[in-house]
Design a protein around this nucleic acid. Structure first.
Lengths: 343, 343
DNA sequence: CTGAAAGCGCTTACAG
DNA sequence: CTGAAAGCGCTTACAG
């Protein structure tokens, strides 16, 4: 059924009785080709099941029609576990690329590795989408390098002034404010913040700032002992809340910097016999799919991955076209569920 | 910082005072290159931040170093929702490809579209990994076409005798048996099967067969009214169980053909005031991440996506090397949680 | 409207 | 151990 080698434009040219460049023109829809000739060529191409060799056309055009998604995982994480939020993002990104006619190459990166250039320089991708990172302060120097090298890239993450490159992130500050206000409205007064609040984790820091500002605005003091470090795993959330309890600090609500932390937090509470939401209200951030299925279901902050993905891809394509591109913040929205509702 | 065009092997050759082919050899580790010369070339390549142009080397080598993951979605599904099981699979596949030094291109396909050839024929990928499908009977004719065309592909899904191409699947039959036995051991006697049981959905059918065989083996009759059609969404599970209840059929356990169905089933039970597991035991299949977090946590059948992904990638690479490859079934394992435990 | 020519950046026989 | 040559399959000025 299939010939030895696959059909090339020369085969078609031969069968159509025209030159190979004419085949190329006809296939690419050049208006200069005679309509009859084009039809004949199209017909033959179809019969031969011909497909343009992308390696050849990319080589010639000096581009790839592909975007690379570089996925940075914290090496401390369990090998088999991927942050579910990133997984949602991946689904949205794939669709957004397809809409634009681009392929998406995906790659899991170790933070330590020398990832910055590979893809674009080797012409496997026209640009990079960066998702996730460990420590922002280390990461940002890599971004500077990328900018310096003229690599086309966009990243998902907090938007900060003076930041190298283009970032698309959600409004973490607003999300932090809204959630804190919600907890106050539920009558909670001793709200702990579970998550790192340092420049190393700027998304968390923004969420923390939203929390602090809202507390202050409501006349509540921001107490340092109510903030416990945690990074975004269940285990870390569990440990942080256990520590909070063991220190004997009183609290009636936990604002967790991520859903994964919140899930660990809920386990820790359950293990100590504390009820959610009666004894302690628990809120998360991200709205990962699991959040609707925890017991009780988890109040959280929704990030619109579909909008984010569209914006990421469109920004990257604009960058590739050498158009000016701005960083962007998309709104965050509360998803209120049972875990924070005082009945 | 960066020169106009990126460095090519000619630039390196010029600087190293050798010919371009020698650069190519040195870079590819040919043993015929003088060690000193090689060192010099490597050094210069590094300074220029040189990367081999993949389009050029792929064109020359007639291969791509890339595998394509074609992801078929049932068009009836919500646009933003991806089956979480496939998402886990995706994570595992990405890693398995990386281990083998291949890139993974991912693509969401509409079932209707003309997907079968594109990737390999256009030299964007050396082979295809197929994940998901709607109706098996339609799908299988596509597989035949792929085989006929000599396309290199493997698929995740049930392994059936006489099936075209190579499939890697879990032991659905055994999983169905084990789960049914578990439910019987918990003292359940009226076990309903929620999910399609037809050749259109052969994974479900195998699970159903395991269920039937085990019931019969235990001297229980298999009653047709205890099987309700459902495909793998929460909504479908909800509807099926609602129907079961409305028909007034008695049951004390639900064996759901997938976790998504089980989650919908649990909602339907809750809406009718039925308690899990006291009134009704509920079991699923897949062990998606959410399964541990439902209330109560969901007993299910685990499919080892890591093993599956490794096998899929290795089989595909063997196929590409024109080695003989067999379909394979990997074991399924029970994950017993609260939803089926009679206390 | 169409063809002859050049060239994208590699890799690999073939000579030496 | 190294170079000159050919060629992978396309696209696009340039001529006509």
């Amino acid at each position: 059924m299939r010939n030895k080698g696959k059909a090339t434009s020369f085969d078609i040219a031969y069968l159509a009785g025209v030159s190979q460049p004419t085949v190329s023109r006809a296939l690419r829809g050049s208006p200069t080709v005679n309509e009859q000739t084009r039809q004949r060529i199209l017909q033959i191409a179809h019969e031969l099941n011909y497909k343009v060799d992308k390696n050849a056309s990319n080589l010639r055009n000096q581009q790839s029609g592909t975007l690379a998604l570089l996925f940075f995982e914290d090496p401390t994480l369990d090998d088999s576990l991927i942050n579910p939020f990133f997984l949602s993002m991946l689904g949205s990104l794939t669709r957004a690329c397809a809409v634009q006619g681009y392929d998406l190459l995906i790659s899991f990166q170790q933070l330590s590795s020398n990832w910055h250039v590979e893809y674009e320089d080797s012409k496997k991708a026209d640009g990079l989408i960066l998702l996730g990172y460990g420590d922002y302060l280390e990461y940002v120097s890599r971004l500077e390098l990328l900018v310096e090298q003229g690599t086309h890239f966009v990243r998902w993450g907090v938007v900060l002034p003076g930041q190298p490159g283009v970032s698309i992130g959600c409004d973490n500050l607003q999300g932090g404010r809204d959630m804190t206000r919600h907890l106050l409205e539920q009558g909670r007064r001793n709200i702990a913040f579970i998550g790192h609040a340092s420049a190393h984790y700027p998304e968390f820091l923004e969420r923390y700032k939203g929390y602090s500002q809202t507390l202050e605005g409501a006349g509540c003091s921001v107490r340092a002992e109510l903030q416990i470090d945690a990074f975004t795993t269940e285990r870390s959330g569990y440990d942080a809340v256990t520590e909070l309890i063991e220190r004997g600090i009183e609290f009636d609500a936990l604002f967790c910097a991520s859903d994964l932390i919140a899930i660990g937090a809920m386990r820790a509470l359950a293990d100590r016999g504390l009820r959610v939401p009666q004894d302690v209200a628990v809120a998360g951030f991200d709205d990962i799919p699991i959040a609707s299925f925890t017991n009780p279901s988890l109040t959280t902050v929704q990030q619109d991955t579909k909008a984010a993905a569209t914006l990421l891809v469109e920004s990257l394509l604009a960058l590739i076209r050498e158009e000016p591109v701005q960083s962007h913040t998309i709104p965050a929205r509360l998803a209120i569920r049972q875990s924070t509702m005082s009945s």
